[in-house]
Nucleic acid binder design. Structure first.
Lengths: 241, 241
DNA sequence: CATTCATTGTATCAAAATGATACAATAAGT
DNA sequence: ACTTATTGTATCATTTTGATACAATGAATG
């Protein structure tokens, strides 16, 4: 059934940019609404009796199954022409409902953008009751998104660039243990910029935030790299490379 | 008269951290509501037919008289216990109104925080119709603010720290022409950290974003400093000192 | 089992940025 | 002229970064 007005705050919603790292590429979760051809960021409404943050967390949990999520708010989009009535009508029609023209979900919406960084391999994307699919897309090969969702994605990536080094970005995109090469790849893909291997390694080790573990024997005919994990106790003074 | 519900978006407001620089200290505009003892950030509601950004701009313009303002959104505060009903009742009572308990302004509010950087000397703070005074306060000597406004101020300052160097912070806090010492003071006060005079000067000049003008004869018995202005054409590659 | 090959971990030296200090060049006032 | 506080640069030591080289693997090959 449709969300009920009295339970929710009107005119305000959230959208999440959920990112995962495959080891080579940055992926984003995009959902497609049933029979509507509408691609959108996973979003939702805020209940009158819940924190904004909790509403977002609930939405991400329902779609990824994850309990512990690194969530950061990055921007609130409030242009008056953010008109979601057309896609929402199509979505409702796709589900077999007809919305009266004064239905609250057809009104103007201001949306709060959050990004979530998750471990790509731990997630089983789950469609919600309005969407028939939710899938990982390469961040550089997105379908056409509804309303201003493309702009929201851009702003999220910009914020992540600023946050990298200040917030535990790498920690959340990488598995518990990872190689230096993977860590470097995360930095490169987010900052869209290449680093010199030796300098990157020296700097990362010099910051004293990594703990070295056993080697990773990949089967390749070359020296096996060490695995590292973040030394979370020493992460306070972290800086950009 | 009171704001009318049908003209405004409910449950959503904005608050602005308006900062000015005296040459020595960072000041913030705080308003005090009539007969209520309530100190608050200048804020307001969003009309149903205006952009969020325009609503904020309108609010700042009405209180400062400025048309060109550097406004940046920094965070949206959405805890469910953001209860402004008590202060709002007092404010209304102070104005001689009584609000019915189901009045929309007494409901839960989510607020979008913006900061504005303005030229301290160009402003004549103007109270709005609900407040009886609006004054500059030293950023380190604030009165007790209502609800979570102190937290909003903190978050604003944190954001400005991050933005310094990336956005034209100094440009907006300083007059058209300024001395190197004033510029350094802005950096020091925002980053809460002192810089070596010679290194700061070398770095600033080295960035090639300043234009040198005539000297400023202050009347003091020492060498007169040069005045500088920002070379806005070359500001793209600006970095932190 | 020596050889080959791609990759990793460091060392080394050059170049650039920063820190510390010194000092000459003012603007007034005495 | 002499004094004083401040400003603008220069200089040299120190630290950080860039560029390059190279030894040390893992596994496959013959």
């Amino acid at each position: 059934m449709l969300p009920i007005e009295k339970d929710h705050i009107t005119n305000l919603a959230y959208d999440t940019v959920i990112l995962g790292f495959t080891g080579k590429e940055l992926k984003i979760l995009i959902l497609e609404y049933q029979n509507s051809g509408q691609f959108a960021l996973p979003g939702g409404f805020i209940r009158r009796d819940e924190d904004l943050y909790d509403a977002v967390k609930r939405g991400v949990r329902e779609r990824t199954g994850l309990e512990k999520i690194h969530l950061e708010q990055f921007h609130t989009f409030g242009k008056k022409n953010r008109d979601s009535s057309y896609p929402f009508k199509k979505i409702a029609a796709g589900k077999g409902y007809t919305l009266t023209s004064d239905h609250w979900v057809l009104d103007r919406f201001i949306t709060v953008g959050y990004y979530a960084l998750i471990n790509y391999n731990q997630v089983q994307p789950t469609p919600d009751k309005f969407s028939d699919s939710i899938n990982w897309y390469d961040i550089n090969k997105l379908p056409k998104l509804m309303i201003d969702h493309a702009e929201i994605v851009d702003k999220a990536l910009e914020s992540i660039q600023h946050d990298l080094g200040k917030k535990p970005i790498g920690e959340n995109l990488l598995p518990e243990k990872f190689t230096m090469k993977e860590l470097q790849k995360v930095y490169e893909i987010i900052l869209n910029k290449e680093f010199r291997r030796t300098t990157f390694q020296r700097k990362m080790l010099g910051m004293d935030i990594l703990k070295r573990h056993e080697k990773l024997y990949t089967g390749a005919a070359n020296k096996a790299p060490y695995l590292y994990s973040f030394n979370t106790k020493k992460m306070e003074k972290a800086e950009k490379p």
